[in-house]
Amino acid sequence: MYTVIGDIVGSRGLTDRARAQQAIVATLGRVSMAIPLVQRLEPTFGDEIQGGFKTVGDASLATLLITLELNRLANPSPAARPPVDPLPDLIVMRFGIGKGTIGVFDLESQPIRQDGPGWHAARDAIDSLGKKSGARYVGPVGTGWPEPAAVNAFLVARDGLVDTLNHRQRRMLLSALHGESQKSIAEQEGISESAVSQAFARGVSAVRDAQFLFGKA
């Protein structure tokens, strides 16, 4: 199983921690509907989340979707902006992806009580980021695909490109990853299809295509 641990970056700076946790729960619910899970995505203790996936492609896609969903909640399109309710803070997360066996002690507990090398690898991966956002992978070396160096090269390039996108472009990327057309995205954003096409040319389509190709590797 490919394990994922996520952790909030700069959590002490959040103005409303309860609302932030609600945003995380809503985000995990949406991502869980988009990607097959081996183990449910759920908050754990403190500011962390965890989940399990069948492939490294699914695990990496989950980290990207979570990032983009949190951006959408904090920075919705004008048409989706609530008229009164305050928006949640923009939650920035870092992610560790691991691979290895796990031992589950209580599947019904929330969070699931478990341990094992798979979780230790994900912990090592997230620790390697320090206080930076993004994602890293720790797994077996020299055993064929996925080779950690290759996976991390992809993650560094992907996350670096996402960092160059503004909030609107990140919403477009989220919609594109869900298979929505440029026409539909233009309607959601209240802009022309030409403006959407320009955003795709400036990085949105590159991230989408790279993520899908990585998932097929």
Rank of each mutant, 00 (worst) to 15 (best):
D7Q: 07
R208A: 06
N166P: 08
M1W: 01
G51I: 13
Q188D: 11
G130S: 09
D58K: 00
L41R: 06
V207D: 03
A125Q: 01
P76C: 06
G13C: 03
I8M: 14
V162A: 09
G130H: 04
G118N: 04
K132C: 12
P82S: 14
S60I: 02
R168D: 07
V196W: 06
R113T: 14
R19K: 12
G13E: 11
R123D: 07
D89F: 05
L41C: 13
E147N: 06
G142L: 03
G57W: 01
S109T: 11
G57C: 07
D163W: 10
R40W: 07
S192M: 05
R94P: 03
F45K: 13
R30C: 08
T15N: 11
K132I: 09
D16M: 08
T15D: 07
A34E: 11
P82K: 12
R12G: 12
L87S: 09
R113F: 15
T27N: 00
A176C: 10
F95L: 03
V204I: 01
M33A: 15
G57T: 04
P82C: 13
S175K: 14
G203T: 01
G203V: 04
D159V: 05
G46H: 09
S133K: 11
A74I: 05
D124H: 13
A135C: 06
N166H: 10
R171D: 12
A18H: 11
R136Y: 03
